[in-house]
């Protein structure tokens, strides 16, 4: 057989800006990047908890009331909500539930999970704070 590797291999590789090529890629990248805020917020919160564990509840609360932390938390909340919504949607896309002859749509999983999120969050706040 003829040697088909006579010429240098030409393969179009991904360029650093590949994710700007179409809307789906960009949305995927936004979804992945928003997870950074989730991670950063977790680290900040763990640090806050360590203040409480080693110091006092007042240290913890004053750390959380720092305007920079409040500001970051608000930004992180927006990105976390977006990140959660994308995964709720994907959950519906990869694990549709069969009801009778039809299957559930991804947006139905999104709506149901958002409702559950609100209910569970409220229950947690009620148990820990309001009760």
């Amino acid at each position: 057989m003829e040697d088909n590797k006579r010429y240098p291999e030409l393969r179009r590789r991904l360029s650093p800006g590949w994710w700007t090529a179409n809307r789906h890629y960009t949305m995927y990248m936004v979804r992945e990047w928003t997870s950074l805020f989730v991670a950063l917020y977790s680290l900040i919160f763990i640090y806050g908890l360590s203040l409480w564990a080693m110091g006092s509840r007042a240290d913890f609360l004053s750390f959380l009331k720092n305007p920079a932390i409040v500001g970051f938390s608000l930004i992180a909340l927006v990105f976390t909500m977006y990140h959660a919504a994308t995964w709720f949607y994907l959950l519906g896309a990869i694990a549709p539930v069969k009801i009778g002859r039809s299957r559930t749509k991804p947006w139905q999983a999104l709506v149901l999970n958002l409702i559950l999120l609100v209910i569970i969050s409220y229950l947690a706040i009620w148990l820990l704070v309001l009760r």
């Binding site: 179409n22 789906h24 890629y25 995927y28 992945e32 994907l90 896309a93 990869i94 694990a95």
Partner: peptide
């Protein structure tokens, strides 16, 4: 990592992303 573009471009309506998950 669930980019999902495979299922968008499939000309036969196959959903490979679903199969992978």
């Amino acid at each position: 990592t669930l980019v999902g573009e495979c299922s968008v471009v499939c000309p036969k309506g196959v959903d490979p992303m679903l199969a992978i998950q």
